[in-house]
Design a protein around this nucleic acid. Sequence first.
DNA 1: CTGTTAGCGCCTTCAC
DNA 2: GTGAAGGCGCTAACAG
Lengths: 348, 348
Amino acid sequence: MTVTLADVAAHAQVSPATVSRVLNGNYPVAAATRERVLRAVDELDYVVNGPASALAAATSDLAGILVNDIADPFFGIMASAIQAEIGGSGGRAGCERLAVVCNTGGSPEQELKYLTLLQRQRAAAVVLTGGAVTDAPHAAAVAAKLRKLTDGGTRVVLCGRPPVAGTGAVTLTFDNLGGARAVTDHLVALGHRRIGCIAGPAERTTTRHRLEGHRLALAAAGIEEDARWTVHGRFDRRSGYEGALELLRRDPSLTALVAANDSVALGACAALRDSGLRIPDDVSVTGFDDLPCSIDAVPALTTVRLPLAEAGARAGRLAMGREDAPGDGTASVRGELMVRGSTEAPRE
Amino acid sequence: MTVTLADVAAHAQVSPATVSRVLNGNYPVAAATRERVLRAVDELDYVVNGPASALAAATSDLAGILVNDIADPFFGIMASAIQAEIGGSGGRAGCERLAVVCNTGGSPEQELKYLTLLQRQRAAAVVLTGGAVTDAPHAAAVAAKLRKLTDGGTRVVLCGRPPVAGTGAVTLTFDNLGGARAVTDHLVALGHRRIGCIAGPAERTTTRHRLEGHRLALAAAGIEEDARWTVHGRFDRRSGYEGALELLRRDPSLTALVAANDSVALGACAALRDSGLRIPDDVSVTGFDDLPCSIDAVPALTTVRLPLAEAGARAGRLAMGREDAPGDGTASVRGELMVRGSTEAPRE
DNA sequence: CTGTTAGCGCCTTCAC
DNA sequence: GTGAAGGCGCTAACAG
């Protein structure tokens, strides 16, 4: 039936052990023998049995990347960079890693499920991307699972989420607070005093930190926040549309809208347009992340650029052990304010 | 060290076989025994060794989804739907499949590499999404690989690409030709006669079929195509920007631009705006796919809606054997013309 | 219903 | 530099 290593050995007239050695390249083998084996592999069209070798070697060549929403380019861009770095280790045909992305859909249960599945596969590395859920029991469950993974020899990297103490996970966190602070500082500097905020899901760290940055900026400017000025939603366009409508219903005098991310901001823009309001003349709008679509908005979105691809690449290298972890295991990645056409001083 | 099935058996005072049986649920076990085993699993915090069970059972619970560009929502949406259908088979904790997406970056070599990796893992199913490369040697290599996969018991599904004869792969192809035909028919009906086309990469089936549909529409209208009216690029915004500029340089009298997809169309819109041209007053623009972003364009994009999520879900079910394949193994998925603000009759 | 017995295909000491 | 032998952890017939 299916060709095994023993078949190759017979064909090449060597022992199975020798075939194994040339395939794994971790051992000296005479050049002539190697040639013969390689030829046999080719002729028989042999493909290693992954599970068998993983079992025997107690390690697998699988690496998992967890994302909250694979249809969102925010994650796609990171995942792409991570995968390129992990899978692209141009080596011999036998040495590649299977870098693989798993979509949790933002669900804590799915996240845990995938971590278990990856643990079961004895994955060599796991990268968790994007904001975490702050719900205490779940956070504890994830922390416990991460600890077990690292204990089992799996390298764990957190990319774009806060560090989790005591897990042995290397972390690249995004400076969401600083970025959000910069955005609102910018609006305040333009003269805005009544700023609505369309925040993300209340239970996610990303939302919390961005909201906190926003509030710090308001406080620094001596602006007292009105409870009506904040709504929560998801990280999608629709939430932006509905959020903008709701905020303007609550307080039509708002002169600016700070959105949880670019998709939300685009939704908000659509709502403003549909309400007959002009951007930025009537209302300024800001996004976050600087995804490709933010530049196609009319007017282009003022936002915070997060170096997603760079961060992903670095996370990938960390996961492969090809780059040393920062001293304390955690590094912060800063965003950069991109001022574009969607913000302007409020009218008189 | 790490807990094994034997440990659980000892703890529960049953044989390893029994533990295996309750974990896999494919065999009758007394309720009391099952309880005992489950408790032991819990107390010992046991996690199945995936490679070992895959080896013994000669099947794995891994399913792969290949995409050309994970940062492109076109693939993200499909992958999300596929993964939900494959991974979400809410069963007991032991029965889930690891649905996993692999990003080929559109590279034929990567595609083959991932297929080999998946073959090595003895994947239960593989779904290939998006257009294929028409390059003959590569197409043959992929066909051969697919045949080997199906021979080895892996279920193979093609989603959004043409069928590959003799491989045993079930296919869901997109009616790119029909969709493109409808778009250009629409423009022609509006009165356009000089229509530029920003096509995708020349070597991909998606590009070919869309181009063919476009040309059929032109031919049907008795419009003789000018060779200057077509440029090729990638499926991204930038290609759209540059393509639009190039086409207008070649022939400033064009009154409409047909783009390879929505991203390309958005890029073209940006180029037109930057050139001081109004959409659709000066130039009409059309996209393809109807991604979420297409509705945020100003004006909203006339495009062809492809039911990506539905197609993905169906592909996922086919991959799981939860839905019967169409009679001849191939089904065509049609797109729907969405007429929006970006197209209009040309000015006098 | 449950225990026993063989492997699944490969890696890895150990000898030669 | 190469072969021989044991075992990785689990499943799948068999018996009972």
